[in-house]
């Protein structure tokens, strides 16, 4: 029985390799185009491997996109840190304190992560103008607040999975609530922090909608700058490919090195964590 299955399943590599080609195709074209010299660039030979290693396209793309790459980092890092910290506190309170109305508060927070942002976009822009928070700080604030639902959800599920005895023991030892959080929960929360930080970093880095309405050409993050580069007639396709890889690289590296945590964030986002 086992032998039949073992022999029978090797054919599965054929569709799997075929699918591998499908998934790698866009990555292949981004990478090889980037490494071609300007002299080699021709749409007719776009699938051919580069004849040597050149950096013309990357240098050109970087010189155009560098300011927006920094804008993205400057906005994304504080946004990810702050919304993760808030999520941890909320998750702690919601998981460990069964107050009246907790069953109502949680879904009310949760709904915020599914809304189409078009339904709050006009008030958001008006509000930011009203309070005078413009550009990148406004964008970071939007990512912090609209990130609260998913960060809260992830931490709440994690803290709810911990045995109640852990907290009871600490209470008997005289720890108050903040002590329990600070000395018991926080030290064992690091894996959840990694999950949430990666998730927030990726989604804020990749966001386009908030960025395009809240920032101007002085403080565009990378997604807006790349899209405008692609829409302009002056910048050729090869530089666009190199620029795309630069824009994708930070989140791609996070995925390559911390993929396991990335997947957990992904499943949490579908409420299936």
């Amino acid at each position: 029985m086992k032998t039949r299955l073992r022999l029978g399943k090797y054919w599965l590599y054929i569709p799997l390799v075929f699918m591998t080609v499908f998934y790698l195709l866009p990555l292949y074209i981004m990478i090889i185009t980037g490494f071609k010299s300007f002299a080699e660039i021709d749409l007719k030979t776009m699938w051919n491997l580069p004849q040597g290693i050149a950096f013309d396209n990357y240098i050109e793309a970087f010189s155009k996109l560098a300011p927006s790459l920094w804008n993205s980092f400057a906005m994304v890092i504080p946004a990810a840190l702050i919304s993760s910290a808030l999520g941890s506190l909320n998750g702690f309170v919601l998981a460990k304190w069964k107050f009246r109305g907790a069953d109502v508060v949680f879904p009310i927070i949760l709904f915020g992560m599914f809304i189409p942002y078009q339904s709050i976009l006009i008030p958001l822009v008006q509000f930011m103008n009203l309070v005078g928070i413009k550009g990148l700080p406004g964008l970071a604030l939007a990512h912090i607040i609209y990130g609260i639902p998913i960060t809260t959800l992830t931490f709440r599920n994690y803290y709810a999975s911990l045995p109640q005895e852990l907290l009871e023991a600490a209470k008997i030892d005289g720890a108050d609530m903040l002590g329990i959080y600070r000395y018991i929960l926080l030290p064992i929360s690091m894996p959840s922090f990694v999950v949430v930080l990666i998730w927030q970093f990726t989604s804020a880095w990749n966001d386009f909608l908030f960025a395009v309405v809240l920032t101007g050409n002085r403080d565009w993050p990378i997604t807006v700058a790349l899209n405008n580069m692609a829409g302009s007639q002056i910048i050729s396709w090869n530089v666009q490919m190199a620029g795309s890889l630069l824009a994708a690289l930070p989140t791609l590296l996070v995925y390559i090195f911390l993929g396991r945590y990335f997947l957990r964030g992904l499943l949490a986002g579908s409420l299936k964590g």
Partner: peptide, 9 residues
């Protein structure tokens, strides 16, 4: 899964 790490843009 890697395309999930990349932006729609």
């Amino acid at each position: 899964l890697f395309p999930m790490a990349i932006s729609y843009i």
